[in-house]
């Protein structure tokens, strides 16, 4: 029957639908930043009725599969760590589980077979380069004596980026605007196209708002929204000085 085929077609397309790597990468980058204390001004998610993971397991039919999947996930994490360790050489490998985390963006090197992502063209610049996806010769045998002077590894870069953004965020929260600006400026100087560049600009908007520099805040906010789309940033600007200026301009008069 025609209709049945149509419906099946719709469902099949929906099952195949997938986001772009770029978008997933952006979300992952945002997850590297400690969340603000009051994310997007919204209410906390009510998870009171969230089933406990154990209960979920008990109710699951494919328990064995699930356990397998979890093991695979954990294994993937271990493998990722191992690959990063190999590509970075032994000198930089943390020796204890409490060492600083590895920041490899997970989407750039997917573990899933169906994901056709060889190496997404990163819009954010060199900080996104994946150690494991690098075309450089795979250094499987450690060579401690002499290597070229250590270029800032992507991991180190991202850690440094994150530290700067976190410092800026903390300074902004305690209303130390000059400190916040200093951190943001430093981030802009060291990582002009870093993974967290968007986060930096968003914080800059909020900082400028608090400093009463609305015009400059608005121009940065507009650039940000134009570059990345509104969905990602507009909600987080809701409580800022620029939101009212952005939304009326962008809302078509006839929209519902």
């Amino acid at each position: 029957m025609n209709q049945r085929r149509d419906i099946e077609h719709l469902l099949t397309q929906a099952r195949r639908a997938a986001p772009g790597d770029e978008a997933l990468q952006r979300v992952w980058s945002r997850l590297q930043v400690p969340p603000p204390t009051d994310p997007d001004g919204g209410s906390e998610l009510d998870l009171s009725d969230l089933p406990a993971p154990d209960a979920a397991a008990a109710a699951s039919l494919g328990k064995a599969l699930v356990v397998g999947a979890i093991k695979a996930v954990v294994a993937a994490a271990v493998v990722t760590g191992a690959v990063v360790a190999v590509s970075r050489g032994p000198a930089t490998e943390p020796t204890s589980p409490g060492e600083p985390p590895r920041e490899d963006p997970p989407i750039a090197a997917p573990a899933e077979p169906p994901a056709p992502t060889p190496q997404p063209a990163s819009p954010e610049g060199p900080q996104q380069a994946e150690p494991e996806a690098r075309p450089a010769p795979p250094r499987t045998t450690p060579r401690p004596p002499r290597r070229e002077p250590p270029p800032a590894s992507p991991d180190a870069d991202l850690a440094a980026e994150r530290a700067l953004i976190a410092s800026a965020q903390a300074a902004h929260q305690r209303k130390d605007l000059s400190a916040a600006r200093a951190h943001l400026d430093e981030h802009a100087r060291r990582f002009p196209r870093g993974l967290l560049a968007d986060e930096r600009e968003l914080l800059r908007v909020l900082t400028l708002c608090d400093a009463g520099e609305t015009a400059q805040a608005e121009s940065i906010a507009r650039a940000l929204v134009a570059k990345r789309g509104a969905g990602l940033f507009l909600p987080r600007l809701q409580a800022s000085c620029v939101y009212e200026r952005l939304v009326p301009v962008q809302r078509p008069s006839g929209s519902r």
Binding site: A14, R15, A17, A18, P19, A23, L24, V27, W28, L31, A69, A72, V73, V74, A76, A77, T80, G81, P97, G98, E99, P100, P101, R102, D104, P106, I107, A109, P110, A111, E112, A115
Partner: peptide, 20 residues
């Protein structure tokens, strides 16, 4: 750190379907 590694692995494995 270890939680972050696990979250990274979960993200890698499930972000696409969760997005969908």
């Amino acid at each position: 750190a270890d939680t972050r590694d696990t979250v990274a692995a979960i993200y890698r494995a499930h972000a696409r379907e969760l997005w969908r």
